[in-house]
């Protein structure tokens, strides 16, 4: 998303390129075009566009992508502070 940029250097996204099999699934599921394919390996081309939705990590068949997934929503985070991370949280 070129028109909207959020905070920089905050994403928890990590890719272990060694183990990548080049299936391209991460490029297909990422809604912000964070990944690109180079020489049959995926690489992170735009880390600051990452919203940590977790689509890439849950769809990587060799599990070389890790991210702390979550919801980028202030009222949701406030509730996790109050009720704890595992609580059932009512929001949108």
């Amino acid at each position: 998303m070129k028109t909207f940029r959020y905070l920089e250097n905050v994403s928890t996204l990590l890719l272990d390129q060694e183990g990548c099999i080049g299936c391209g699934m991460c490029t297909a599921v990422c809604p912000h075009q964070v990944f690109t394919m180079e020489n049959k390996k995926s690489s992170i081309q735009d880390l600051d566009a990452c919203i940590e939705c977790g689509a890439c990590a849950s769809n990587c068949p060799v599990a070389v992508i890790t991210v702390t997934p979550g919801v980028g929503c202030a009222s949701y985070i406030i509730q996790t502070w109050i009720k704890g991370r595992d609580a059932v949280i009512e929001c949108c």
Binding site: M1, I51, G70, G72
Partner: peptide, 15 residues
């Protein structure tokens, strides 16, 4: 932030 499609939880927590 919760209604937008471009905010990350790490970023929201930071701000």
């Amino acid at each position: 932030t919760g209604a937008t499609p471009f905010t990350s939880p790490s970023g929201v927590e930071k701000e």
